[in-house]
């Protein structure tokens, strides 16, 4: 700054202006330049596909075939399509069956890991391990565990005189099977995030509560959970988005890439519905419209969850 105040000496006028301009650019322009790769990529791989999908959704657009502008006809057809709503119900159903126990379990797990335990680090790493395995690997192994003829679960159930269950056959059984895959993989991840947040809660709060005679359980519900609220909101959001775009697990559970989600769509999710429309029935326009409705669905789901989680622990 001080240098600039000094009158320029012996500097040819021609060179001053460009280098000043350079300096200004360095100050004002470079930051934008430096952050631009992300936005450029986002524009190419995020905004453009979003817009193009909207454009496609307004057409009767057949893969490698004819395209015809039809306005909102796809959306109209979609909201009266039973199989679309079946997919929505499945997605929401599996989301609830998977996420509710998952968050509760993660919370309890995090609380346990927050205690003074022997081999604490090992245990903390341990709960993260499932996350390292690939989704497909998890789904393949679980699908075998749930297989009708040689599956582990049916074998265990047979000790109690239960006949082999074809897990893919009913909504409830397929939902449970898929939810366990999701929970196995994600509970530990959420637990670690909650654990990290737990460790930022000042210890004196607990000490004060303990002096006042609060039990461990009261401390958990009255101090830990309310203090964790922002983190729980985050965890719930992530789970909502993950849950509503559920895809790999049910596809692998089906055992082939037909995308029908069972013989009568018992566990076909919206994401599978979209892929089926686009790449099995070759109706790109219809699939694009479904993709946009899924987007709206996620937006709504996230908003509802936000509203719910805000009320945790008696928020004002």
């Amino acid at each position: 700054m001080t240098l600039q105040l000094a009158p320029p000496r012996k500097v040819p006028g021609r060179r001053t202006a460009p280098s000043r301009r350079m300096a200004r650019f360095d100050l004002k322009g470079v930051p934008y330049l430096l952050v631009s790769p992300y936005y450029l990529l986002f524009a190419v791989f995020g905004v453009f596909p979003l817009g193009y999908t909207l454009w496609v959704s307004l057409h009767d657009w057949e893969l490698a075939g004819d395209t015809k502008f039809t306005g909102l006809a796809n959306y109209g057809e979609l909201i009266t399509d039973e199989s679309f709503w079946n997919a929505v119900v499945n997605t929401l159903g599996m989301f609830v069956v998977a996420t509710v126990p998952q968050i509760v379990l993660a919370l309890l797990l995090a609380n346990a890991l927050n205690k003074r335990l022997r081999g604490r680090l090992l245990l903390r790493l341990g709960v993260l391990l499932p996350l390292v395995t690939s989704v497909v690997a998890v789904a393949v192994v679980f699908s075998q565990l749930y297989s009708r003829d040689y599956g582990l679960f049916n074998w265990i159930l047979s000790w109690f005189g239960v006949d082999p269950i074809t897990w893919q056959n009913e909504k409830w059984s397929s939902w449970i099977a898929i939810s366990t895959m999701i929970d196995w993989r994600w509970t530990g991840y959420n637990a670690i995030i909650l654990l990290a947040a737990m460790q930022t809660i000042p210890r004196d709060l607990y000490e004060a509560a303990a002096i006042d005679g609060a039990t461990a359980r009261t401390q958990f519900w009255r101090i830990t959970v309310p203090m964790l609220r922002p983190t729980i909101v985050f965890v719930v959001f992530i789970s909502t988005i993950g849950g509503l775009t559920l895809f790999a697990e049910p596809v692998m559970f089906e055992g082939n890439p037909m995308m029908t989600g069972g013989t009568t769509g018992q566990y076909q999710t919206v994401a599978m519905f979209i892929v089926k429309s686009a790449f099995r029935d070759f109706e790109m326009g219809y699939a694009a419209a479904a993709a946009w409705l899924l987007f709206v669905l996620i937006l709504l789901g996230t908003m509802i969850n936000y509203w719910f989680t805000r009320r945790i622990g008696g928020a004002k």
Partner: peptide, 19 residues
């Protein structure tokens, strides 16, 4: 191909008890 896939799913469902 699309019709074949769709109707065979129903047959499968019938055989497995879902239909």
């Amino acid at each position: 191909a699309q019709v074949k896939t769709a109707v065979e799913k129903v047959i499968e469902g019938m055989d497995q008890g879902a239909v």
